[in-house]
Nucleic acid binder design. Structure first.
Length: 489
RNA sequence: GGCGGCAUAGCCAAGUGGUAAGGCGACGGUCUGCAAAACCGUUAUUCUCCGGUUCAAAUCCGGAUGCCGCCUCCA
């Protein structure tokens, strides 16, 4: 028998359906079943997708760190109108569109340090499960078939609107809903779409066609996690209609509750404007990574509450990048100080204290911003001890640094090596400035000569010249080192 | 028209009844040839405004103003 050691301290989770923070009680003690809506694979991901990925990755990491056995499912929507359109645009089969952008998705997620979920089902691998679900909805009178299109009847489900808190009748009036003459109620949504000429299709008792978007997540989530399951997540925009529809069709089909906790992350704006393809202000993850370390984006998102909207702009990212650099240098200093020294491990009371505060913050609906503040406290404490140059403090520094790394790791930070972190910063900067490393190294060599000759004027000229190019010099006991000023502008 | 959110220092931002976390920046100090980094200190008597409840309010209630999201594919 596995000894489950879940830290049962009260984790609270904000539940969209109640609008309140609730005590988190999983269906099965010690286990969490989590489903998050993935992406539709018809384009490269942007920094908004990254927010959702980072937020739920952090929850996943934290739940695991508390000792929960987490089953995490994230789907790929690989059949959809947009994918079909893209296949025409790029003149490649629709299957290839999916493969191409799934590969792009993994490239981005791996770069961002997003852990792989337990299961990553693709919609097209589960068409049979969707057909079964649609079929049962027809038989139970919750769906109707018109010319091969199958619609869910919202009037047949009493609780429709419960999640998004939209009373049915009020929605009808002002809503800009496509008037489809075939539908009984304008809010009825497609469970199955009859295939058109030249479109991908599957055989079903109710006609040849393909699944609607909402039914995919219902089929795949219940298949992998059962019914009900613990947490269903996604971006805030999915509350209506996607999650409302998932809930309606699943509960109508099973007669049981679908999900216990609904969790939604807030949106990303760019320079106070909504990020959208029509405005043309989207920023892809790949573009972001040309200029910054992946963890800068993570630190940026985690310093905001996951439910708040967040405004992306150059200044904020530069600020956070400077802070990230400080964390990396703190750990580096601590490890350098320990190199080649032997000492007895000793637990450090202040580190334990900070650990406790960290857990309290994260238990309060994943308050990552507060949790981060405790990591910075610890960073400060480590640097303070290092500055004291008290040899006896080494065991304390070692233990504080261990805690520091462990807490940062729970948030997916400090996962890179110092060398890689520093090199990436240098390479990105030099590429941007059109310089190469030998230019900097030569300048440093000249300056060392000048300093030896006590020609401080020349030495300072060289330093100023480099500073203008965003390169700063540090004269340390180990020699002259260089770093990049983190501001991109 | 319906539903919901937000307003905290120069900037970003946490904080839902007990007297304002943290980051970035700025200034002063230690260190240094001078710097940088790091550390120490300073940087919101006050949380958009007006009124109310309370011994006590950034936090609760009422009102005003401003900004934003969803209701259409969307993380």
């Amino acid at each position: 028998m596995v000894n489950i050691t879940v830290n049962a301290m009260a984790l609270k989770v904000y539940n969209t359906i109640s609008g309140k923070k609730e005590d988190f009680t999983p269906i099965t003690e010690g286990a969490v079943k989590l489903y998050v809506c993935g992406v539709t694979v018809y384009d490269h991901c942007h920094i908004g997708h990254a927010r959702s990925a980072i937020v739920f990755d952090t929850m996943y990491r934290y739940l695991r760190s508390k000792g929960y056995d987490v089953t995490y499912v994230r789907n790929f929507t690989d059949i959809d109108d947009k994918i079909i359109r893209r296949s025409h645009e790029e003149n490649i089969p629709w299957q290839e569109v999916g493969q191409k952008y799934i590969a792009s998705f993994y490239e981005d997620m791996d770069a961002l340090g997003i852990m792989r979920p337990t299961h990553e089902p693709r919609a097209t691998d589960h068409i049979g499960d969707m057909i079964t679900l649609v079929d049962s909805l027809i038989k139970k009178g919750h769906a109707y078939n018109i010319d091969g299109d199958v619609y869910f009847s919202v009037d047949s489900f009493r609780n429709y609107g419960q999640l998004s808190k939209r009373p049915l009748d009020e929605m009808m009036s002002g809503a800009r809903v496509d008037v489809d003459e075939k539908k009984r109620n304008p809010l009825d949504f497609a469970l199955w779409k009859a295939s058109k000429e030249g479109e991908p299709s599957w055989d079903a008792p109710f006609g040849k066609g393909r699944p609607g978007w909402h039914i995919e997540c219902s089929a795949m989530s219940t298949l992998f996690l059962g019914n009900p399951f613990d947490i269903h997540g996604g971006g805030k925009d999915l509350v209506f209609p996607h999650h409302e529809n998932e809930k309606a069709q699943t509960e109508a089909a099973t007669g049981q509750k679908f999900v216990n906790y609904w969790v939604h992350n807030g949106f990303v704006n760019i320079d106070r404007e909504k990020m959208s393809k029509s405005i043309g202000n989207t920023l892809s993850i790949k573009e972001f990574l040309k200029d910054y370390h992946p963890e800068a984006l993570r630190l940026f998102y985690l310093s905001n509450h996951y439910r708040s909207p967040v405004d992306y702009n150059g200044q904020s990212i530069d600020d956070v990048n400077t802070a990230l650099q400080r964390l990396y240098y703190t750990r580096h200093r601590a490890l350098e100080a320990q190199k080649g020294k032997s000492f007895e491990a000793r637990s450090f009371e202040q580190a334990e204290e900070i650990n406790k505060k960290f857990i309290e913050a994260m238990d309060d609906d994943f308050n990552t911003a507060l949790a981060l503040s405790h990591i910075f406290e610890l960073s400060k404490e480590i640097n303070r001890m290092l500055d004291d140059k008290d040899a006896g403090a080494l065991p304390l520094i070692a233990s504080a640094n261990q805690m520091f790394e462990s807490l940062a790791g729970t948030l997916g930070l400090l996962e890179d090596s110092f060398e890689s972190f520093e090199n990436q910063a240098k390479m990105r900067h030099l590429a941007r400035m059109g310089l190469d490393a030998s230019f900097v190294e030569n300048a440093i060599r000249d300056r060392i000569e000048a300093r030896k000759a006590k020609n401080f004027q020349k030495a300072d000229e060289i330093r100023n010249m480099l500073a203008e190019k965003g390169i700063m010099l540090l004269d340390t006991p180990q020699g002259t080192q260089w770093r990049i000023k983190t501001s991109v502008s």
